[in-house]
Design a protein around this nucleic acid. Structure first.
Lengths: 324, 324
DNA sequence: CGAGCAATCTGAAACGTTTTGGATTGGTAA
DNA sequence: TTACCAATCCAAAACGTTTCAGATTGCTCG
């Protein structure tokens, strides 16, 4: 038994002939090592866990499909599998995570949509469980994360529009203190400051993230002002698409009367009329990289946690143009 | 040890006082039974497996996110977790599945996007592993599936358009023999036959599923004919959205010159201008139900496999209207 | 010729549960 | 007094692997 185990694992202290004989037989018999037995003795599960964010009943997430696909692809290359847990009604994501860690169900975790001071990060650091997050936190000790440079993207968006003559800007944002919000807004403000143009005005709307009606209302109000912005930057595509619809409803045409730029490059951005100019963050590829970062960490826990900042790429479609 | 195990499991042959004492202590210590140990002895993993369909590098799947979310929600209610495996470059989905079954990594599987004669179904039936599919197969022995009534939906679409005076129809379809294609096309043909109207003409295009350029070409060709259809029914929303773009490029306005109806109700359908009339199949809720069907099967393998046919609901937006 | 070594193999322990088949205790009926 | 029973509790086996610490063999060297 021991020899067979070592033969399959490729150890060097088993003769070549024996190894081949064992492997051949294993193939013939369709043998695959039982997961549970292996887990028990090795302490490794071969799983990486992802706790699904809890969400409203009809919130559609174009992000998750790509992300899961990328993770799966990245992990299979490392011989891991992905394991997904949802939080039930009366559980927070933190509670689910705690249970999973205690039950030893995964070797490491992927965290998405983290907010500043996210308790999940604290918990995993304390437990010394490997993890990698998608997104950063403000002023926190070091851990492994991958993020898209939202600040850079929004700065780019501002410069693009400013060069086209726009001076009155609006940002459609959310009320929640998410890391990506802070990042992108800071990028925009930094770029405005750097332009050093006293004519530039920035108006903001901040409706609750998943409250579409509130966003519509805020946008409509914004676009109805006499000094309405000529350029709108949306925190993410859905808000930009809503803005285009509201502009349309108010008789404004995009991009002649109003320029709109989004972020994410969801499929709908390409199908909208006009196509929404936005930034692509290559979610699937990011997820693949997160998988690699996490498995590296699982393999050698001593190493300093790696971090990655990726550039989003501008997708120029037809929703922006010269200031009216 | 034995008593503690039985106390936590709620067996009756442990005194009430003891049980409470054990449970209290377990809570205090943050004890959660180790998965591997439990798996090994019980033979149950507590996992349900989903093998990700292999896909082209930039194919975006609005379906997967919803589906995974629904599965997760449904499974957590049953005390299961979801486990996702991707196929690597040189593996088929069948091979991945075989490996997972042999390694005993899951108690049951969910299969999506099954084609007629799908070998995965055959394999799982032979191995007597519980599974539930999303979608049906033609003429196959009984197994557990959930499907949306595409035939009914396409019949509804035809009647809707026929009542609006349309006579020249086009269906934008794919080349692959998928179950949903057969189903929806049959529904359309059945409805045409039932209408018994000699004036009705149906033209078809069948480009490879993921070849967007080919679809565009076929649609453009179809819409350039002198006797072009006045109503287009797309096998799924992406094709409908592409059709609207092509119509626009040819100077046809939707819905005045051309009506378009899709299927799936992807987010982009709502953001398109005009909004795409389509059918919603409540993917997330379907996935929840699949989770319930599968766990029921895992619990009592002897029962006859359950099947569910769900009705898609028509979402009337602005892409259809009276025949020109 | 014995010691030492390399190459190869193997028995047994260990991992953390659940389950099985008693063991123990105290009480009750014959 | 003995036998039996119900209510509890517990020791040990079992699950399928990996790893540790030898064991065995055949060879080389002094």
């Amino acid at each position: 038994m021991a020899t067979a185990s070592r033969a399959l694992a490729g150890y060097s202290d088993v003769a070549v002939g024996t190894r081949e004989r064992v492997r051949q037989l294993a193939r013939e018999m369709g043998y695959a090592p039982n997961m549970a037995g292996r887990m028990l003795v090795s302490g490794r599960t071969g799983f990486v866990g992802l706790v699904l964010p809890v969400r409203g009943p009809d919130f559609v997430d174009s992000f998750l499909g790509d992300f899961v696909t990328g993770l799966g692809e990245g992990l299979v290359a490392e011989g891991c599998d992905l394991f997904i847990a949802a939080a039930s009604k009366d559980q927070t994501e933190l509670e689910v995570l705690q249970h999973l860690v205690r039950a030893g169900r995964a070797d490491g975790f992927v965290l998405t949509r983290i907010a500043d001071g996210d308790p999940r990060v604290r918990f995993l650091i304390d437990q010394r469980v490997p993890f990698t997050t998608h997104g950063r936190m403000a002023a926190e000790e070091s851990f492994s994360w991958l993020d898209t440079d939202g600040a850079g993207a929004f700065a780019t968006a501002f410069r693009l529009l400013h060069d086209l003559g726009h001076r009155r800007f609006g940002i459609i944002s959310i009320a929640e203190q998410m890391g990506f919000r802070r990042d992108r807004e800071a990028g925009l403000r930094g770029a405005i400051a750097a332009a050093d143009d006293p004519a530039v005005i920035l108006t903001e709307t901040h409706a609750p993230r998943f409250d579409t009606a509130a966003h519509r209302h805020a946008i409509r109000e914004l676009l109805s002002r006499p000094d309405r912005p000529t350029a709108l930057i949306a925190l993410f595509d859905e808000l930009g698409l809503i803005a285009m619809q509201e502009a349309n409803a108010l008789g404004l045409s995009v991009p002649q009367d109003l320029s709109v730029i989004g972020f994410d490059n969801v499929p709908a951005a390409g199908f909208a009329m006009p196509g929404l100019t936005t930034f692509d963050q290559a979610t699937r590829d990011s997820a693949r990289q997160i998988a690699a970062m996490l498995t590296a960490q699982i393999r050698s826990p001593a190493e300093a946690p790696a971090t990655t900042l990726r550039q989003a790429v501008l997708i120029e479609r037809a929703s922006h143009g010269p200031a009216p």
